[in-house]
Design a protein around this nucleic acid. Structure first.
Lengths: 151, 151
DNA sequence: TTAAAATAGGATAAAATTATCCGAATTAAA
DNA sequence: TTTAATTCGGATAATTTTATCCTATTTTAA
């Protein structure tokens, strides 16, 4: 038996979000984490995860240190200010969650696609959620065992 | 300048939904529509659209007639009973809109991923919307000019 | 009966996404 | 100063999604 699932995010985004949460979690303990440790923790392919982390570094979502004892971290005071939307934007570009559900170039109140109004609240809720959920709360839930990064 | 957009649906689904709406719209007028007419109306690549229509035919979402004066149609009495979820399922498989947002294999109340609860209402609203929106209302909005299939 | 107009479906190609590999550069410790 | 542990980044490969092409089959009208 198998199931097909509709994903909200690309694999790249999934890995990016999970990696960021784990880095935030570790940074609270003052520990820098290596690519290897991240990939193991979030159960992702190492080399691909490396690419995504490079994106996140370029966009200042996380910071990196090269060399032995190097790795990735997030400055403690910044953790609560990083929203899911920052991560998604860093990876998938300046995303517009309000893009037309059916791919019309123009889709607004005046010229709506067939599902424009139907989707309105879903889109808005998604946007709102991404823009208001920060890394701190997500990391704390990992710490307390309230949520999990793999399996 | 350019924008990157996060899509809710695959291209295949987008075309499938738009094609179904147009076929429903035409079927109210008693007119069968050809692949060529559909692709033109919804602004989609013809050959790819053909594949998607074949899927929809196999899953009894629309019916087809071969040969001259053939084309696609939906029996009038069925139009209101066809939901968006039927179309999405026909194209992307038996979809579970409630799949984990971060791709965890197990993700439920007891073992939630970091965004499980945050996503809960978005997922539920999407599912609800897909399962309760039928082709009749969408086709009527095209007819009245309240919504559009292209541009 | 033939010709034209359609859908059906197999084969293939192009593009995008996901994934891997490897050498270069950097850093800290021994 | 050397070595080991790292990130960085370019090149490439594999997979999935999107797209095209072509032939076979069906159907209707002339």
């Amino acid at each position: 038996m198998w199931q097909i699932v509709i994903y909200m995010f690309s694999k790249a985004c999934e890995y990016g979000i999970k990696a960021s949460i784990f880095i935030a979690f570790s940074s609270y303990n003052g520990t820098r984490v290596s690519l290897k440790a991240i990939a193991k923790e979030i159960n992702s392919p190492e080399a691909f995860t490396a690419k995504i982390l490079q994106d996140l570094v370029r966009h200042d979502v996380v910071s990196s240190t090269k060399g032995a004892y190097g790795g990735f971290e997030i400055e403690k005071t910044l953790i609560s200010s990083i929203k899911l939307s920052h991560i998604v934007n860093a990876i998938d570009g300046d995303a517009i969650y309000s893009g037309c559900g059916l791919g019309l170039h123009i889709c607004d109140e005046d010229h709506p696609c067939p599902v424009h109004h139907k989707f309105k609240s879903v889109r808005e809720e998604l946007k709102d959620m991404l823009e208001n959920t920060n890394l701190e709360e997500l990391a704390l839930n990992i710490k307390s065992g309230a949520s999990f990064l793999k399996v």
